[in-house]
Design a protein around this nucleic acid. Sequence first.
DNA 1: ATCAAATAGGACTACACAAGGCGTATATAG
DNA 2: CTATATACGCCTTGTGTAGTCCTATTTGAT
Lengths: 133, 133
Amino acid sequence: MLKLSKKVEYGLIAIRHIASVNNHISTVKEISEKYIIPVDVLAKVMQKLTKGKIITSYQGAMGGYTLARKAEEISVMDVISVIEGTQVGIAQCFSEVPENCSIYTNCTIKNPLGKIQHNLEHVFSSMKVSEIV
Amino acid sequence: MLKLSKKVEYGLIAIRHIASVNNHISTVKEISEKYIIPVDVLAKVMQKLTKGKIITSYQGAMGGYTLARKAEEISVMDVISVIEGTQVGIAQCFSEVPENCSIYTNCTIKNPLGKIQHNLEHVFSSMKVSEIV
DNA sequence: ATCAAATAGGACTACACAAGGCGTATATAG
DNA sequence: CTATATACGCCTTGTGTAGTCCTATTTGAT
């Protein structure tokens, strides 16, 4: 409950790593070995971060990843939404299909939850990756 | 990911309900029917809230629940921790057994996550149930 | 041209947890 | 004594997370 996924953690660690080596190209192998992260899992995380234009990939031998923008311009919120794909909400009201909630029409706490949701988004958006390095 | 459990939602709705009827005694049946919440699930939520001294229970016929303290003195954080039982953390570092994290010793983002964790707790603690009524 | 190293990405399994259902015991007002 | 409540444990099901495995593609170096 209220937990960040491992994928997000791995993503943050990887981004932090690349930033810490002055944005030199880094490979999945290198990062996964250094932080003891399952290679395949990290690989897919990196692919999502690439698609989300947070990092840039270089294929083939001598390939790897660099940051697509400065660490100060990447927020934890960016990382979360790119990796999770779907809209992240603390309740179903704030996800793709709000009506799917079993108590949708009778719910009396949509507004207060919305306020909380808004505050959480603020917390995640204001925390930049540069603060992690 | 980062979702509140249904139990917490049900708990908040129930508490809001009792507050909205001026703390008159309310039964599980009444609440579950009004908001279309599964009776058994709500019943267990109420039991936890009772054990956590957020509401007071009256057994037997004509029994039910009232708030144990004023709505202004119950925070969403209180409700969450009482219902979830365990310490709620966005990552394993902030739960009961931090060392269980698969990347515990190599993790480079414990501090920043701690900062986020702290901010989240603030969001949940500052939101009182009275704001929901 | 070939090989090795790297990313890209789909399919599948194992497991934990959330959500709910069911059965029974206990308390109490009338 | 009975009807109406809460108290509480056990079990089932569904969903989502985490991880593994396999194959395709790209590209630098020999």
